[in-house]
Write a protein that binds this DNA or RNA. Structure first.
Lengths: 338, 338
DNA sequence: TTGTAGGCGTTATCAC
DNA sequence: GTGATAACGCCTACAA
């Protein structure tokens, strides 16, 4: 015993048995007499012995930590997802280590290397491009779950919202309200959720013969403040404005609305807005976003479930869970009148 | 080499040198000829060898992971703090492991035990009671930084906003606006930030001879939805209402305002509100909270700095950083008129 | 059922 | 300057 902490040898010695016996007893393995097991467990309980996780991990070949790589924990959508996943995995004895890629591929690759180096037990990748790291993913040889990442050739577990459909739905809704000129604010290029939504938007435009105007397309990093500054550009630099905008996530939309109002634009009278995520805040009076929900609870449950499944049984057939988005109509969209 | 990964022995063997030499070379330790060192580093670079962190940790006695225990990562204030701290510590080669105590002391104690068991390099504790875990803290013998936790007898590093003053300031502001009946929404009992604010509020009430009414005191878990449900109670169950409320954090305040408006109360005409944190969202039109800023950027920088200081030099004299809160006046407070 | 011994991948302490 | 060797704390064949 050093450092105030007991080691398995201490326990063994105190009981006059071998380390193996103690190990078996505390791990619930067979091969120990019931009587002796109880004696071991009692002492362990009494002195408060806890096995050293590092040593366990070295021996077992991996840590019971799951890496979770996402864009930015400050985005409430990610925070919700993380919280839920973490809670479930914790309950099953796993820790979760969160990494903010800040939507930077290089940083993401760094984190993937760290995942290897640390021998994490598993890896959850949320909402970013997968192509650039596909090779690495294949060679990692640990449980992996992809969330909201599209990668056609990827065989492993993944759970995703049908983001193409979500983008399409947004346009459909605006179309029913007679809008003809519809702009789009994309997310970071690395985000496949964003790309899919954009594709859905373009497809809908095309299917219904609406014009696509490159000038009506902007890019955000999903942050509130970016929404605000984009609004400045939108109001001041555009000679002709669309009557509606589809915005890649709620936080950008909230910022964008703020910037628009700041510049005298009324919403929805002068501009209709549809966004994505249905974050808590979007329901609040004074915001009341019309948005497309991703069902974050279900997403996190499926993600955690798939991870646990792989963790328990390395060889199981991959699942691909696809969740349907839902339109939530509130007060940022209205009928377009000439 | 197994599992597609090289070990230090592989590297040693490939070069025909000993493991010790390789270890010294990659760790920049003295005792290797420059020539040989270069040869080692070149090979390491070429084959992409990375030392196994678990083994390193076992040998060194701790992981280069810092545990960060907070209430709930979905609270934007915590998310901001976490993001910043994580970014700085990452830059210095440390990982951060986040734990959501959900404001539950038992859970917090669990996490403290895990911190020991995992041999984490350090511990950052954010905004919760410290008394109940003080003993454990003392016996942990690793770098610890307390954030927004008051513990008079605690000698170690800590950074905190003067929350007593913040609570006092909130009342002062309302007093200048002629309010006489001022209520309060507390945070979870475990949160010392909340307790301090409440104490400041009471002190100000007393100093200026204002009445304190137990009926005007509510409790929140800092979540938006809780703010909403508290508003129901506030509007429906109170026979006489205060003209102003001080609310423990922005998110609760946002929810509370929503619930009030839902029930026909106008803000600030019928009710003034002051809250704490100055989260991004509080500046948005349609919200525009009058709030007391905690200067989250400075907080996180100091926190990370203190942790790194301890990590580098176990024996250094403790610092206590105290940040002054700042009142940000927006549109949820107005002059009280009879 | 129990104990012994070797191994997990590093680092650190000795010799040489 | 370099190389054996022990140690970190645990798990797990294998032997008794």
């Amino acid at each position: 015993m050093k450092n105030g902490k007991y080691s398995i040898s201490d326990v063994a010695e105190m009981l006059g048995v071998s380390k193996s016996t103690v190990s078996r007893a505390i791990n619930g393995n067979s091969g120990v007499g019931e009587e002796l097991r109880k004696k071991v467990l009692d002492l362990v309980e009494e002195i408060g012995y806890k096995p050293n996780t590092i040593a366990q991990s070295l021996s077992r070949g991996h840590m019971n930590i799951v890496a979770l790589i996402l864009g930015d924990i400050r985005n409430p959508f990610y925070a919700d997802l993380t919280f839920n996943i973490q809670r479930i995995l914790n309950k099953h004895g796993y820790m979760v280590m969160v990494f903010n890629s800040e939507y930077d591929v290089r940083r993401e690759i760094e984190f993937l290397k760290l995942t290897l180096q640390f021998n994490f037990a598993g890896l959850i990748l949320i909402t970013a491009q997968a192509e650039s790291v596909e090779g690495m993913l294949h060679s990692m040889n640990i449980p992996i779950v992809l969330v909201n990442r599209i990668l056609p050739s990827y065989e492993g577990d993944s759970v995703l919202t049908d983001n193409f459909r979500a983008g399409y739905m947004a346009v459909m809704h605006l179309l029913e309200l007679k809008h003809k000129h519809i702009g789009f604010i994309k997310g970071p290029g690395i985000s496949s959720a964003s790309t899919q939504r954009f594709d859905g938007y373009r497809q809908a435009l095309q299917n219904f013969g609406l014009p696509f105007n490159e000038e009506y397309v902007f890019a955000s990093d999903l942050k509130l403040e970016t929404g605000i500054s984009l609004a400045q550009k939108f109001v001041k630099e555009l000679k002709e404005r669309p009557s509606a905008m589809v915005i890649v996530n709620d936080m950008t939309a909230v910022g964008f609305m703020d910037g628009c109002k700041e510049n005298g634009l009324r919403i929805p009278e002068d501009l209709s807005i549809v966004s994505f995520d249905n974050v808590d805040i979007s329901a609040i009076k004074g915001i009341e976003l019309t948005t497309i929900s991703q069902h974050v609870d279900e997403m996190s449950e499926h993600t955690a479930r798939l991870m646990l499944k792989q963790l328990k049984n390395k060889e199981c057939k991959p699942e691909r869970v696809i969740l349907e988005p839902t339109l939530v109509v509130r007060n940022t969209t209205s009928l377009y009148e000439e």
